[in-house]
Design a protein around this nucleic acid. Structure first.
Lengths: 167, 167
DNA sequence: ACTAATGATTGACTTTTTCAATGGTATAGG
DNA sequence: CCTATACCATTGAAAAAGTCAATCATTAGT
């Protein structure tokens, strides 16, 4: 095992599915105090779980996000999706391709600007979204289970300011 | 489908500071309220900026993270690095390979368990780390510039509980 | 009208992620 | 002691994600 001579006090390892590796020792390092790192780790855990759960619907976090925006009523263009999701426009093309092939969204030429295509959800797409959103909520609840409702709101609000800091 | 013409279709072209695409309209959507999504976006922006700045030192966020833990004094094994950084063990191999080739870290067989290799930084590695850490601090300051010191602490603390929620 | 910019798309290419297999080593049980 | 099982680091292959430049159609600027 690890290099720790002293056996862990509460050597609880069976009980549940907690493969607590030897991570605790590293939680006091400088890296573990960097928001950059914490964000990456939180995201990795969160999207890992969400992807696993969404697999039942043949969706991933990415396609779910596109579907969600397609259902928002804001009629986003592919360019807007790319900017909002921090993806390359070419990635949006294939994401929309898949959802369109599936009958979940449609591409409509924007009458104001015929270069641009507006993505909207079909009725089937909205049904799919409702099911997926329930799963994602459950997944998020798991990820945030250690936080109170107030803390979750605080986290959300702080993250919004970081994620949209108008850089 | 009522979002309408009032948003000046021509779209402003703020030359310098704000490449604000058409993102604002989507900030009120359900997706924009999901911590999962916000985390992904914050991380994408943050690591994008950090990678750009770290390029001066021929580092990326990934290699910087390994170097940081190598400098921590905790003498982590590759397995621990993998768990802590949410990476596959094989990715650690190549990350350590590069840093070792560069003379920044060493692999030492753990006397307690000769299967495992302990990663430690060399003097040159520590120098490199100090330079890189300064850059990363600067990058993080940029990412969090909209938050007060107290808010940054709050964010860090909440993220720690999410990133290490003992799942 | 002419030129420069933009949105979507394609294709090539690089990087990251994910997995299965292997050799060396430790641990548990007989 | 011996054997079965599990674990770590490593390799290699394959899938997914990300990056870029070029193109077509369209729009904006002058």
């Amino acid at each position: 095992m690890s290099a720790q001579p002293t056996e862990a006090p509460g050597a609880q390892q069976e009980a549940s599915a907690s493969p607590h590796s030897g991570i605790e020792r590293l939680q006091g390092t400088e890296l573990a105090a960097e928001v950059e790192f914490l964000t990456a780790r939180a995201r990795s855990l969160g999207s890992g779980r969400a992807n696993q759960l969404l697999a039942d619907l043949d969706l991933k976090v990415r396609s779910y996000s596109v579907l969600s925006l397609a259902c928002s009523g804001e009629n986003p263009s592919q360019r807007e999706l790319a900017d909002f999701l921090s993806l390359d426009p070419s990635q949006i093309v294939s994401l929309v391709d898949q959802l369109e092939k599936r009958g979940a969204v449609t591409r409509e030429a924007d009458p104001r600007d015929r270069r641009s295509k507006v993505i909207a959800a079909t009725a089937a797409g909205r049904r799919l979204y409702r099911a997926a959103a329930a799963i994602v909520r459950e997944s998020e609840a798991q990820s945030l289970r250690r936080l109170s409702t107030a803390e979750r709101d605080t986290l959300r609000s702080l993250l919004q300011r970081v994620a949209f800091n108008g850089d």
